[in-house]
Amino acid sequence: MIVAELKEIREIRNLIDRYAKILVVGCDSCVAECAAGGHRETMLLAAALKLSYKNDNLNPVITEACLDRQCVDDFIEGIAHQVPEHDAILSLGCGAGVQALARVYADKPILPALNTLFIGETEMRGIWQENCLGCGQCKLGHFGAVCPVTRCSKKLMNGPCGGSKGGKCEVNPEIRCGWDMIVRRLDALGELDRLSEYVPPVDWSTSHSGGPRLIVREDQKP
């Protein structure tokens, strides 16, 4: 899923202060799972904004709504009846959600309430871990299902650097060394031999380095 975090109220206020009527729109998918932009967080943000404006003796219209998915047109249309009566939309979707709303509601300002961070998993309640960079050529089969592109701070393909110590990364002791995880896991699976071969330079053309990516599938078109 996509993992995001709420921006500071001050920063959100800077984006929306110029509007009198604001529609605050959550997304009940990925960003709900990471407790940043779901139904509950949308209510909390709307309440926090109302309080913040009240403290400044301001009283803009703040309306809440929440879509099941902000990145799919069929769902985005769910707020079509509310959009015309507002000056701007504050989105609690990920970056994709914000941009999808902007494409559908082309004449409305759409502002982000979240900082979108990464593709990751919920390791446990309150802990989300980045584990995919969407490089476009999944290499997990060679590395014991631990991604060196994502989990190694230097994207190393041929083994741990000299900064791996006690299973931790040189960048920060809070970061587990991805290569330590790869070596341990393949060792436990009896497949360490996978690592002795030279891995040639990565073809980054399928990643964002090749430009914004687009998939066109004729079999899926209406």
């Binding site: 083994g159 741990p160 000299g162 110590k165 299973g167 070596v183 341990r184």
Partner: peptide, 9 residues
């Protein structure tokens, strides 16, 4: 550096 078993590899 660690993992130790990996250094010579």
């Amino acid at each position: 550096a660690d993992p130790v078993s990996w250094r010579v590899v």
